[in-house]
Structures are given as structure tokens and as C-alpha cells.
Design a binder for these strands. Structure first.
Lengths: 167, 167
DNA sequence: CCCAGCTTGTTTAAACTTCAAGAACAGGGC
DNA sequence: GCCCTGTTCTTGAAGTTTAAACAAGCTGGG
């Protein structure tokens, strides 16, 4: 697409550039697509939906704020605001942690579970249609491997698991 | 990770689920990582940086607002706000389109090009370190193919190119 | 020509995210 | 106990994004 003119800043190789741009296009288009789909069908952005999913899978449908933030890969601050909003919708409620007075549980309410169950099929269809149905099984496998490698490399350090020199 | 309890909403298969979660984790971690890197080194979010890149590659370092919005995969509204901010920084300026009085060009200024050239190497390194250096050549190729397929499927329809039944 | 309908780009307000700061508690050493 | 440091979570303000509405210019059929 771009002409390789001489004032252009140092950049990736031709091949890498193609891959990188395809990545950027695909990921932004997909994120936007899912955000709109969920905003329309479930009245919340994709990230918020993910929070409800995590909670629905946790024992007793509850998680500590920090746990939830980490598994959703967002900051605690962002989570605080998000839970405040979901609480206002009646889909989540908070409860104090008995063993640590600083702690808070975010708990999925029955209404929240309801919304989740009603919107999940549509969301799953959207994910399938945009992603899985377009890829061969081999490509799906490949994508999984690649994304695990990338995620692992960016993970904020985990309980000394990556400090073998410490043992 | 989650226990497969019966109140769980309809979802993807085990394998698909692993792929999908890896995808979500990797893409959000990478986007956050690059956003922070660029916010620190270039005083702008990743998307804004992408706009400067596009402009730098366009003839005469200028693009019509709509063209730029489309190639960056963002809405015109979002672009208006973004360009307003970049203009305030002195990195972009606007100019009227002579042939269409509604039109506006966004033009990369010398200062903008400067910022771009100064921050590009660091950004490229970050992309390499997080993505390319972790993948085999085969995986890079695979990723490119997959992302092109996904992007194509979500592209807001393009000049009848995908309406073969119309010919 | 004329005007309905489309395109271009902006604007407003509300929603969301980030950043920095801070309140409250926990845990350990003295 | 008492301090020190680190953790947990929230807050407020500033910045960004979205959605809807709008002004203005273009365009083509009648």
C-alpha cells in the first residue's frame, strides 16, 4: 500500500509489515464488531460482558476484585468503575471479604446471570461467524498457539514462576 | 480454566474456548502494552500514532478525512476528535479541499514527521519484541494469513468487489 | 433548474478509560 | 504495641470513544 519513500521512518520488513497491518486491521475490526453487537443486544461493551462471564464461572459466582482484574487483564481502577456501572444495572453486587477488611467480592446476581444467558448465544454466534467459521481447523490450532505465546510474553510477572534463577 | 457447571451459558467447544481466550488475552495485553509504550515515548495513544504513520506514507503527507478514517478503521467522528487533538499538538494541520468544499485534508506537519521519526524505532522494537521475535517464520506467515481472512470478513463492504452475483 | 437524498465532516453529551493520588488495612520487624 | 512497607480498592479529573444529531455541500432525476 505505502510507497517506500526515503523520509519514511525505520519500520518493519515488507513481510512483517503485511502481517502487522493485517493484525491491526483484524483485531480492531473484530473488537468494534463485537462491541457493537453486545452494546445492541446486551447493553454493555465487550469487556463488561467478559467480566460477567468470568464471574459466572467462578465458584459461588464471585471473585475478589483483584482476581477478576487479573483474569480479565484490566487494571483495578478500570474494574472499579466497571463494577460500579454493572452494579447500577443490578447485574453485579459487592460484598465485603470477611478475612480481609480491604477486600471486596464482585458477585454475579440472578439478573446478571439472566442477561448473560440471554445474550450469550448471539455473542457466540458472532464470534463463530467472524472467526471460527472462516478458519480451517489447522488455522484455529495455529492461532491458539500463537496467541498463547504472545500473551505469555506480556503477562505481568506471575508468582515467581518465571524466576527460575531464584530457586 | 472454568468448571463446566450446568448453569453456564451456551458457549464454544473446549478447544475453541482455549483459542478464543488466548486471543482475547494476547490482543488486550498487546494493545495495552503498545499504548503505554507510546504514551510514554511519543505522548499519544497507539491509534493516534497509526494516523501519523498513514499520513507519512500518503502522497504530499495528506489524506482526506474519510480516506484516513477508512484506512485506519475508525469512525469519522473519532477521527475528527483525534485530528483536533493532534492539531493542538502541532503535529497535523487541516486544509480545505479545493474540489469539494465539504472536504478537509489532514496533513502531517514537519513537527509531526519529526515526532514520528523519533518514536518509530522504539515502537518498532516493542512490536518486534512482543510479537515477531517470539514467533517462527512459519507462525508469522500463518498469523498474516489468518488475520487477512478475519479482516476481510469484517470489512464494511468494498466497491462491489464482493458481489460477484451482480456481474 | 430544483429538490430529495446522499456524503462529508463536525459537534454535543454521555460513557468509558487512564493516571495519579489517597484511604484503609495487612504483615513483619523492632 | 508501633512503625514501616506493601496490598487492596476507590476516587476525581483529564483524556478518549461512542452515538446521535446536525450543517453544509454534492448529485441526479424530473
Amino acid at each position: 500500500m505505502g510507497s517506500m519513500n526515503s523520509r519514511e521512518p525505520q519500520w518493519l520488513s515488507e513481510d512483517e509489515q503485511r502481517v502487522w497491518r493485517a493484525y491491526l486491521h483484524a483485531t480492531t475490526l473484530l473488537e468494534d464488531h463485537l462491541d457493537r453487537q453486545l452494546q445492541r443486544d446486551a447493553k454493555m461493551p465487550h469487556v463488561y460482558f467478559g467480566l460477567l462471564v468470568q464471574l459466572s464461572e467462578a465458584p459461588r459466582r464471585r471473585l475478589r476484585m483483584t482476581e477478576l482484574a487479573m483474569s480479565a487483564k484490566i487494571t483495578r481502577s478500570r474494574l472499579s468503575h466497571a463494577i460500579a456501572r454493572l452494579e447500577k444495572n443490578g447485574w453485579v453486587r459487592r460484598e465485603d471479604c470477611p478475612s480481609d477488611k480491604r477486600g471486596q467480592f464482585a458477585i454475579l446476581t440472578d439478573e446478571g446471570l439472566d442477561v448473560l444467558e440471554k445474550s450469550a448465544p448471539g455473542h457466540v454466534s458472532a464470534v463463530r461467524a467472524a472467526l471460527f467459521e472462516r478458519l480451517t481447523p489447522q488455522q484455529q490450532k495455529s492461532l491458539g498457539e500463537i496467541m498463547m505465546i504472545v500473551a505469555e510474553g506480556l503477562q505481568p510477572k506471575e508468582a515467581g514462576a518465571d524466576l527460575p534463577w531464584l530457586r
